[in-house]
């Protein structure tokens, strides 16, 4: 929707989850991102419309494949099914033009698992996967040449931790907050 001189959005995503890994029921979705076979990945099930940079795949950078979930180098896998746990996500953002050649946007988003397995809880996880805030400014130097600068910061949730190697081992510490920044040069011809 239009808000003042810019545009505002709020968006949510919900995927059902499963809390019992030992029954014969799977209560989340199956995506092509669940297909991984050694050196032949089946692709990832990315969700980019909320413009997250760290939590989900980056919307404007095809070559960056690192994120928390849903990209080809996803810390928690390529599939938004979250290994059966499901997830939910809510995000809001605002973008605005400043003159003819400059645009800016800020986005904030929260990501959570829908359900946890018992071994997640024993390993110290809760459902909070993190809250991200990011900003991008884009300058059109020429009609066909755009340069953008992006910065993003992730407040890591308690889900983001490795599980102990064996049941009963001490709980491992959660991940630290993360940040990233990059410049993108986009030439079209």
């Amino acid at each position: 929707m239009n808000l003042g001189p810019g545009k505002f959005f709020i968006e949510g995503l919900y995927i059902t989850g499963d809390s019992d890994a030992n029954d014969d029921k799977y209560k989340s979705i199956v995506t092509l991102g669940d297909y991984q076979q050694n050196a032949s990945p089946g692709g990832y099930s990315g969700y980019t419309s909320t413009h997250m940079v760290i939590l989900l795949p980056t919307w404007n950078m095809a070559s960056i494949s690192q994120c928390i979930i849903g990209c080809s180098g996803g810390e928690y896998g390529d599939s938004l099914a979250n290994a059966g746990r499901g997830l939910w996500h809510i995000a809001a953002g605002y973008n605005q033009k400043f003159g003819d050649t400059l645009t800016g946007e800020v986005n904030i988003g929260y990501l959570s698992a829908t359900k946890l397995y018992d071994f997640d809880k024993a390993g110290g996880r809760d459902k909070d996967m993190g809250t991200e805030i990011n900003a991008t400014v884009t300058k059109a130097v020429y009609k066909n040449l755009k340069i953008s600068l992006t910065g993003a910061y992730l407040m890591a949730g308690d889900f983001l931790r490795d599980l102990p190697e064996a049941p009963g081992d001490p709980v491992l510490p959660g991940f630290e907050d993360a940040w990233t920044s990059f410049v993108r040069v986009n030439y079209t011809y």
């Binding site: 968006e11 949510g12 995503l13 919900y14 995927i15 059902t16 014969d24 029921k25 799977y26 209560k27 989340s28 979705i29 199956v30 938004l80 099914a81 499901g86």
Partner: peptide, 13 residues
């Protein structure tokens, strides 16, 4: 082996 049933929902707004 036992079959596994799949039931999942995705919703976005």
């Amino acid at each position: 082996d036992p079959d596994v049933d799949i039931n999942g929902t995705l919703a976005g707004i």
